[in-house]
Design a protein around this nucleic acid. Structure first.
Length: 291
RNA sequence: GCAGGGUUAGUGAAGCGGUCAAACACGGCAGACUGUAAAUCUGCUGGCAUAUGCCUUCGUAGGUUCGAAUCCUACACCCUGCA
């Protein structure tokens, strides 16, 4: 079987993944697959710091803008879609580059998570209104054991939906280089600050207002920091400065959760900057280019 | 100048004689997380020891009391009303 190399770039928000991925793509005839739970959505452009049109023109991007914010999207959906896109890319003899900050999505793809028991909207809606105690009781009644996060309503609901299914994962996909783009905390926080500043300059508030009037605050795609931070401002309960500040905080908190997720993965090859990354990639790709 | 209100841990804010190292919220730190994941949730958050232990805190200084963040006095700063 022909080896099929794949490069994945992970890291915290604002760590510079997009720019690195584009460089890789240009160097190796690559196409980018966005492993990102928010940039899949149309109409979320400013708030997600989505690759801009110029960047998208430079290199093909996949799984961007494929859904309306009113539609739900899951890690399993991503896994399926990305798998298909990757085989298309190979059929063009190009290099797939998976880039994203959604750790679960990346892992689902690279470790071939075994998904099962898709959520039933009716059951989920019913369960969502239950208290934690009630959910725990249901689980125990069914003879299932409580999830690791036994006080997390969402995980409790999922446990009920899975109905005893034990999820599995495999080893890291062969022929894969998993690169982690590290960044120190101060630099990251500065970048987030100026990123938020630019978002507001570029019309973040208008984008939020438009999407909210079109899809409503509760739309699945709109569950993200900008909407949380700016809702009180848009509803006239809070000043702009306060919301701006909250958005920065939310992004920093998100970055921290990403860090927690990625740092336990021993397969990640951490690099501190672009040139370190490109060096690693060169070594990795040399295994394939000679054939 | 007179009268009244205020000053609590990183921030906001409870507490108004003992059960107060001091509720709660936010922030911070660490962590979990396979069909909601930029979501959601957990633990810790004065110092030191880390098991029920000790030490230093509630504007500052003094006092009352067996015992004070809580009462009294003085001082400092802030806000409101009358001047």
């Amino acid at each position: 079987m022909v080896p099929r190399p794949l490069i994945a770039v992970v890291g915290q928000t604002a760590s510079g993944k997009t720019s690195l991925a584009i460089d890789i793509a240009k160097a190796y005839k690559g196409e980018i697959i966005c492993a990102d739970s928010r940039t899949v959505y149309q109409d979320l452009n400013i708030s997600t710091a989505k690759p801009n049109l110029a960047e998208q023109r430079e290199v093909p991007h996949h799984l961007l803008d494929i859904l309306k914010p009113s539609e739900p999207y899951s890690a399993a959906d991503f896994q399926k879609a990305a798998t298909r896109v990757i085989s298309d890319i190979y059929s063009r003899n190009n290099l797939p580059i998976v880039v994203g900050g959604s750790g679960l999505f990346v892992d689902a793809l690279l470790y071939n998570f075994s998904f099962k028991n898709k959520a039933d909207p009716v059951l989920r809606n019913e369960l969502t209104h239950r208290s934690i105690k009630e959910l725990q009781a249901i689980i125990l009644q069914k003879g299932l054991s409580l999830p690791e996060n036994h006080k997390n309503p969402r995980h409790l609901v999922r446990t009920i939906e899975m109905n005893g299914f034990i999820p599995k994962k495999e080893k890291l996909r062969p022929d894969t280089l998993l690169i982690g783009l590290a960044i120190d905390k101060d630099t990251l926080e500065n970048r987030i600050q100026s990123r938020v500043h630019n978002m507001i300059e570029n019309g973040l508030i208008e984008e939020i207002q438009q999407n909210v009037s079109r899809y409503g605050w509760d739309a699945p795609g709109l569950q993200e920091p900008a909407y949380k931070a700016f809702r009180p401002f848009i509803e006239g309960r809070q000043g702009l400065e306060q919301s701006r500040h909250e958005l920065i905080t939310q992004h920093i908190q998100f970055a921290k959760r990403q860090h927690t997720w990625f740092k336990r993965n021993r397969d990640i090859v951490w690099v501190n900057n672009k040139s370190e990354a490109l060096n690693n990639i060169q070594g990795f790709m040399s295994n394939y280019l000679l054939q």
